[in-house]
């Protein structure tokens, strides 16, 4: 006590405050939580709520003014065939991208989790992480160079004598086009490329958790390697695939930059949202379109939760 008395006044105050906080853990907790919650709650949730409310407003077709009375008119507009087309097209692309990236990601994740050790593991890990963190736009841009009509793919197929194959691929209706960079094939390739790391990492995490003893037990019980793989490893890795698909699916649903840079003139959901809120000035419709990915992802997430995907994140 004697030393405490001699402390300078400022330090004593600090000690009193810290003691007061330590005796009231709830108060300390509240003080810690208030700033982040204020920021995220007011700025993020507040504006999200303000947007969603606007999907129940409608736009006056004559004046172009937003009418602030609650109505479901904008949602009936959302169900027009042209708009439904866009939603279905985007969902189909998201599904195709998810499927393709899980097929490409699996061998990489499997190799990383079960065979790579030491230095090789670090190299693999960095090689998967770096694209995730390097510039999204630069990576999209690389594909503009690759898929351009005068670019490396055309050159390479011509050199290999496969030029007619490329032409045949491009002449497929709907997914083809005059060049890879203006076709759905191009859009699809770029989506897979950009989101691939998001699929690799959760699968790898799930595979890392498969205990060696289970695999040995399967072998001891007489299963050949391919059966162990199909009946033991694959089911245990499946939550990882689902976890990865949450990212690939959700990111594809909302992206409006990739189809704008590489793709045909038929729009995706994100582009429509962008146009509706911008040049078209129809915030209610843009907001209603925004509800679509939220609804789709809520259903997707609850299904994923049931399949145990969150443990693999």
């Amino acid at each position: 006590m004697a030393t405490a008395m001699q402390l300078p006044a400022k330090q004593q105050l600090g000690r009193r405050v810290s003691t007061a906080l330590l005796l009231r853990p709830r108060l300390l907790l509240a003080l810690l939580l208030v700033p982040p919650l204020l920021w995220l709650g007011v700025i993020y949730l507040g504006s999200m709520f303000a947007l969603l409310i606007q999907s129940f407003f409608s736009i006056d077709e004559f004046t172009g003014m937003i009418q602030r009375t609650l109505t479901l008119r904008t949602y009936t507009e959302l169900l027009r065939p042209a708009h439904l087309d866009i939603i279905l097209r985007t969902a189909a692309m998201a599904a195709a991208v998810t499927l393709a990236s899980s097929v490409i990601a699996f061998p990489i994740a499997y190799f990383m989790a079960r065979y790579a050790t030491g230095r090789a593991k670090t190299v693999f890990y960095l090689a998967v992480m770096l694209p995730l963190w390097s510039s999204y736009l630069v990576r999209v841009y690389a594909w503009k160079l690759i898929l351009a009509k005068e670019g490396i793919v055309t050159w390479l197929t011509a050199e290999l004598g496969l030029g007619s194959w490329l032409d045949a691929l491009l002449s497929i209706p709907i997914i083809g086009g005059t060049a890879l960079s203006v076709s759905y094939i191009g859009t699809f390739t770029v989506f897979v490329y950009i989101w691939l790391p998001f699929m690799i990492l959760p699968i790898q995490a799930a595979l890392e958790r498969v205990p060696q003893s289970i695999i040995e037990a399967s072998a001891d019980l007489g299963a050949p390697p391919h059966r162990t793989f199909r009946n033991v490893i694959l089911p245990l890795a499946f939550p990882g695939v689902i976890a990865g698909s949450i990212f690939t699916f959700s990111l594809t649903l909302g992206d409006y930059i990739i189809p704008q840079i590489i793709g045909s003139s038929r729009l995706f959901l994100g582009q429509v949202v962008y146009i509706q809120q911008g040049t078209a000035g129809n915030i209610p419709l843009a907001a209603a379109f925004c509800v679509v990915p939220i609804a789709v992802m809520s259903i997707y997430l609850s299904a994923a939760k049931r399949l145990g995907a969150f443990d693999a994140l």
């Binding site: 982040p36 709650g41 993020y44 999200m48 303000a50 990111l251 949202v273 962008y274 809120q277 925004c290």
Partner: peptide
Amino acid sequence: LIILPIALPGILTGISLRSA
């Protein structure tokens, strides 16, 4: 709430903030 801003598509965050 903390992970929501990166879990939901960025376009949602963007358009919400813009209209706000």
